[in-house]
């Protein structure tokens, strides 16, 4: 789905990403994880070209991200950020249908799609007319997900989508999200700093440190066959409740 080759990116004197190679498998969920400043959000931003790499090439489904094609390629991706990024001047429904309306899609089909997405994300249809300011944090993220899924994209890019939610809502949404991903069978790339969340969602977990991939594999690989002492420490730094099972 995504092919990143020899990507480097610096912010001033600080190297965010150094010579990174990465291939994303279609139909699977990949979790990008690592401590703050490891470059995980930058990588996600590069995939949708919100951030331009200084060097290297990124291909999406075999096409290089290049000016001129960007808008079309972005329309094949769904992007959700931590606080939803909903437009405050538009109702929930208009946030969801903005792109479809702009592209001139048949309103009837759009309505059906919105209804389907409400059903999928458990968003109450009677709240569609509300503005984002009138929605709870969890509802905002549901709308953001609906917006990302509206054009039925090939890939979902999620940047800490549940990071700002309180634990109960977060737990509820984690369960729902995984169900949705399984129902849709989409390629999902999710950035998180929580190894528990990464292991819950990720078929593949990519652990990053200072702009480099330290280890890539399943939670079992990271736990039982850590590449180095950092991976071991990172995996162990989670407080798990005894008896609770993670991953699959």
């Amino acid at each position: 789905m995504f092919e990143l080759r020899e990507i480097s990116k610096a912010y001033g004197a600080v190297n965010a990403i150094t010579d990174l190679d990465l291939t994303i498998t279609p139909g699977k969920t990949t979790a990008l994880i690592g401590p703050s400043g490891c470059g995980k959000s930058t990588i996600l931003g590069m995939m949708i070209e919100l951030v331009q790499p200084d060097r290297g090439e990124i291909q999406f489904k075999g096409t290089a991200l290049a000016p001129g094609k960007l808008e079309q390629l972005r329309q094949r991706m769904g992007y959700v950020i931590q606080d939803g990024g909903l437009f405050p001047h538009l109702s929930a429904r208009h946030n969801v249908t903005l792109m479809a309306d702009h592209l001139g899609h048949d309103p009837q089909i759009t309505d059906q799609r919105v209804e389907y997405l409400c059903d999928l994300t458990h968003f109450p249809t009677d709240a569609l007319g509300r503005s984002p300011a009138q929605l709870s944090g969890g509802q905002c993220q549901r709308v953001a997900l609906m917006r990302a899924l509206m054009l039925d994209p090939d890939v979902l890019l999620l940047d800490e989508p549940l990071g700002a939610l309180d634990p109960l809502i977060r737990f509820e949404l984690q369960t729902e999200l995984r169900d949705i991903f399984q129902t849709l069978g989409k390629t999902v790339i999710m950035v998180t700093h929580d190894i528990g969340e990464a292991s819950y969602f990720g078929d593949t977990i990519i652990l990053l440190r200072e702009g480099c991939i330290v280890q890539s594999g399943t939670i079992d690989d990271l736990t039982n066959r850590p590449a180095d002492e950092f991976v071991e420490r990172f995996v162990r730094a989670q407080r798990t409740i005894p008896g609770q099972e993670h991953g699959k």
Binding site: D83, G85, P88
Partner: peptide, 25 residues
Amino acid sequence: PSLQNSAIALGLPPRARLRLIELPL
């Protein structure tokens, strides 16, 4: 900036972004 990024990420071309998002805001 997160709203600007959301608009770009949706695939809205610059003119549409100006008309639908930036000017109204």
